[in-house]
């Protein structure tokens, strides 16, 4: 199944990544080659094989419910592109009501 420029554009939307039409057109065949080369994993991935999501079989790593020092608001905001009143200032949020 070939990946089209439209597919790339849809995926770019999900990834919040602005791509030009030219980029989508260029990426589609590149990604297609990569995807077809990795297609073989499905062939060996039998149903009875568990997924390995972690490199080590650790469980129950937890910390006690203890408050530790936070950053100061100045430190927290130090890298922000824009701030106002001790808060991060961001452009208007469209597309959802709240």
């Amino acid at each position: 199944m070939a990946l089209t420029a439209d597919d790339v554009a849809r995926l770019a939307g999900l990834a919040r990544l602005h791509l030009t039409e030219a980029e989508c057109a260029e990426l589609a065949p590149e990604l297609d080659i990569i995807l077809s080369s990795v297609d073989q994993v499905a062939a060996v991935a039998r149903d009875d094989i568990p997924m390995m999501t972690h490199a080590l079989p650790l469980t129950n790593v937890m910390r006690d419910d203890v408050v530790t020092p936070s950053l100061t608001p100045e430190q927290a905001l130090s890298g922000a592109p824009a701030t106002e009143d001790g808060r991060f200032r961001v452009p208007q949020i469209l597309g959802e009501d709240a």
Partner: peptide, 25 residues
């Protein structure tokens, strides 16, 4: 980013991401 988004997206998750994690096993 595009490949990763594709590999996790609904409809492809098992074929790509899921299979890959089995190969990892």
């Amino acid at each position: 980013l595009i490949i990763g988004t594709h590999a996790l997206s609904s409809g492809y998750h098992d074929q790509y991401y899921g299979s890959a994690q089995k190969v990892r096993t």
